[in-house]
Design a protein around this nucleic acid. Structure first.
Lengths: 198, 198, 198, 198
DNA sequence: TATGAATGAGTGTTCATTCAT
DNA sequence: AATGAATGAACACTCATTCAT
């Protein structure tokens, strides 16, 4: 009995990611993916039941990686002060994104392709994983540690700032060392911190 | 191309926009557009030479509207203090976006569909129009009025904050009156303002 | 403005019918149909919105032809005695089927391919057209002119007898003149006629 | 092929039959069958060399069952009068079909799917098995016991009458007790019996 | 200006079948 | 005996685009 080729599943995901980064999520097709991996088109369906399933898996893999980079346990550790935890969260994403500058682009592309149906139950599931951060943020809002605006506004600020930075890096506009995490953190924290921040 | 019946040109754009908002930019097709307008498919090509051309025109129209909402003359008026001009700019976008909550979604969808080729010459053209704001921001950075981070980081913060807000409104998460412009402006300004801000 | 090529619609139907007769309804594919007509595959969708739509149209066309062959007005003419009307009905189908020995095969093949979903609303519509005959038969049952068995049993007897006969003819088992309508009518009528038949 | 595990061979046939009854013979696929049985797709090919082989075996099994229900020995027993033997034949099928209302549908579906090629050598083989009945009928025709029409016309009358009845039962249109065998036998016999019947 | 017709290339997906294990 | 992997061919259907009218 031949082993389920785990390598291939990953290679398919990698090919998909590569296409997304090069041509956009809308340009992903099973033909292109298969051609890139060097397998037959129908083979894709051995590892993913759908194109949606494939895209979703790439999305989930990317989110899992980001979360693995940060230390989730710390984020829920109530013995750590909220501002510290928020900083840890941002630091985690930032470091990962700078190391993997395609990561956030990937996430955003897939989200914008699939999320439009508004109520796509699959993406909802994934979002659920992110609830840890959302919960953390909501806590911080309630405690007055960060400003009283909708939490997804806070989150989108973090995301778009870091994403834009990594895009700039990828385009070679400047060097990673030109702007430190502190620079961005400072900017953001000055903006979002609430009356009870310190 | 692009002849007499201006009404129809607009109706085609409107239909395109509607499809983007409902199903995402990737779902736009000349068939759907034509059906929605009630014309024949080939008629679309009388007004737009391409599907890309069509999408681009919707993109440009939307950006033009936003800019028309703000007072561009003021933004370049050197007799007005930089912080004031920046506020005017944000206010302009904010007011327009709250009034037209689909606007930023439209822009983002098209950008993410077409912009991925990275070097799409058409979108580059459009970006040019936005140089007014970019120039303003760069000026502010140079003067130390806002922090020394890449200007597109500043801009993406403005964009994503307001966009997230309008999405929340459209989803009915809260009422427009629940969060004033001041709230968001305060947050953002606290974040981005530089040493020479006041 | 080019005229909607009515010829082609018919040619597509004809090709479909030919395939059904040669290989069975399950073997119909848009590729085969198009190839047979000498057009591109996608062209089929200009004339029929579906493969189902195409099959259905062939089905309906065949039924319409059969009904046009018989004189429907007579069947509902209450001044004509029931036995006479029943005979007219059988005669109509018989003559048409002998002249067009593929007709009943066509109908049966499509019915067996599409009708399995049991509740296919499209076929139901078509069956509706046949209600005229069903009504006639029910009348005859109620009047004791034909035996008290479910009307569709009566109808299937007529159909299968004639169908088998035409199949035999097509296979060249014997000549049309070898068995007259009278022969079959006699057989059937002796079977189905009720106590109040004469 | 066709090795040890007889249970599995049967289970595959059962699954096939179930699919035919639910979705029609054209919808049968080895994937679906395997899924239904809970085995791997390729396993099917251990028991049947073909999809055609599989379908054929289901067909043959069904015909064998029907024939086993009737007493074949009696049908060829020349000491029994022809009319009696014909009645026995009809009674056998009727009883079996009422008990197994899917039986005739199964046979018909497969016949219509495979038999269209007209000359399918496999089905021809099967028909051979039925020669016993055909011979009986031919004998009856020659003796003037039943009318002088092609024997397959006689046979199709029997088949379609009973089939329609069982379909009605399955659809719940009436109860099995509502129409006795006698009712149908009487109808049919009155129709087909020849000058030398009694 | 407007349209219906036409097409070729493309889409995602399913399938029957084979083969190494 | 049984399976997972693999594939090539087929499928229905959609699309952007062109062209004659």
């Amino acid at each position: 009995m031949r082993k389920k080729d785990l390598t291939k599943e990953v290679r398919i995901q990698d090919a998909t990611a590569a296409i997304i980064l090069k041509e956009g999520a809308a340009a992903v097709s099973t033909v292109k993916v298969a051609k890139r991996v060097g397998i037959s088109q129908s083979n894709v369906y051995l590892y993913f039941k759908n194109k949606d399933d494939l895209l979703l898996s790439v999305y989930q893999r990317e989110q899992a990686r980001i979360q693995a980079a940060g230390d989730l346990n710390q984020l829920t550790d109530k013995t750590i002060a909220l501002p510290v935890r928020l900083r840890l969260y941002m630091r985690g994403i930032f470091d990962y994104a700078v190391d993997h500058p395609e990561s956030l682009t990937l996430i955003q592309q897939i989200k914008f392709l699939m999320g439009q149906d508004d109520g796509n139950p699959l993406l909802a599931t994934v979002q659920g994983t992110q609830n840890i951060v959302e919960t953390l943020m909501q806590e911080a809002v309630d405690a007055g540690v960060i400003r009283n605006v909708p939490v997804n506004v806070h989150m989108s600020l973090v995301f778009s700032m870091i994403h834009t930075h990594t895009l700039n890096l990828k385009r070679g506009l400047y060097q990673p060392t030109d702007y430190s995490f502190e620079t961005f953190y400072d900017l953001l924290w000055s903006g979002i911190k609430g009356p009870a921040a310190d």
